[in-house]
Computed example of a mutant assay.
Amino acid sequence: MNPLRGREISSTLVLLSALLLFGGCDIVGSETKSGPDPSLELSSSTVTFDEYTTEARLTLVLYNSDSLSWSVAERPNWLHVAPDNGVVRGRDQLSLRVDTTQIVGGTVASEPLILTSGEKKDTVRVTKEVPRPLLHLSTTSFHLDELRRSDSLTIESEYGHEIPWTIQHKPKWITVHQSDSTSVTASMSMSFTVDESLLPYGSDNSNQIDIR
């Protein structure tokens, strides 16, 4: 065999081996490993308001990412959430506030609050107890005499609920001045005047007015 020809074949084999070796390194170097997916966790899966509380806070904690967008997908109509969307970076807080006027008095409301982040959904069960609303009067008695022939009182609705009311009894010598409304949502005033023509001169009368 020609010695020059043999050296050419050997050089070719060495070159092919080098190409295979470096080619293998390129294939190994192209492999990638993905880390864990971003995860948004809530501080609690339930929020309960008793009859005296209307505000609470919920904490969002982010894992495996620097930032993540989120939004409120569903909430009860009686619950205000602030903010209702945003980008959490590490940790954030939501303010929850109950509007008791949207819940029937004397009941317990329990509905879901749903937050979404990417394809994930988190559900928080929100419960609020609302006691039966009551009417409150600014005074339970007043005294009228020859110098003071009128007086007034204020009717207030507890928890801001609309409450129907009516005067079921009053003495005939008392005239009631009021608005045309027969229900109260927050508060309203009512005044009374004595009709002296219906009282015997020099008499001392005591009676009551029933409002229910």
Rank of each mutant, 00 (worst) to 15 (best):
V47A: 07
E162A: 11
D37Q: 12
D122G: 08
L153I: 08
F49Y: 10
S157W: 02
Y63A: 14
G29P: 00
S150R: 13
H136R: 15
L153D: 06
P131E: 12
G160I: 02
R91V: 09
A73D: 11
E158I: 00
G29F: 08
V87Y: 07
E31F: 07
P76E: 03
S39A: 06
S138R: 05
E156W: 00
T48A: 13
S43M: 04
D151W: 12
E162L: 07
T48P: 00
H161R: 05
F49R: 01
L60F: 04
S69Y: 09
G118M: 14
Y63I: 02
T127L: 12
R91G: 09
L60C: 04
E55Q: 15
D122N: 15
D50T: 06
T101Y: 01
F142Y: 14
V104Y: 00
A109S: 13
G90I: 05
G105H: 07
V130T: 08
K128L: 09
L115G: 05
I155L: 14
W78A: 10
T48C: 07
S45H: 05
D99K: 02
R89T: 14
G29N: 13
P131Q: 12
N64C: 09
S44R: 11
L135P: 02
D122M: 13
S152P: 01
Y52H: 10
S138C: 05
L79P: 01
R125D: 12
V47M: 08
S45C: 03
S157C: 03
T53D: 13
T127Y: 03
L134E: 15
I114E: 13
A82G: 00
S45N: 10
L153E: 07
T54P: 00
W70V: 07
E111M: 14
D145L: 03
N64D: 15
G35N: 06
I167G: 08
D99H: 05
T123F: 04
R57Q: 15
Y52L: 13
G160K: 01
L115V: 09
D92N: 11
L137N: 08
P131G: 13
T166G: 08
G118T: 06
D84H: 12
S138A: 09
T139M: 12
D122R: 10
V124Q: 04
V130K: 00
L60T: 03
R75W: 01
E156Q: 08
P83L: 11
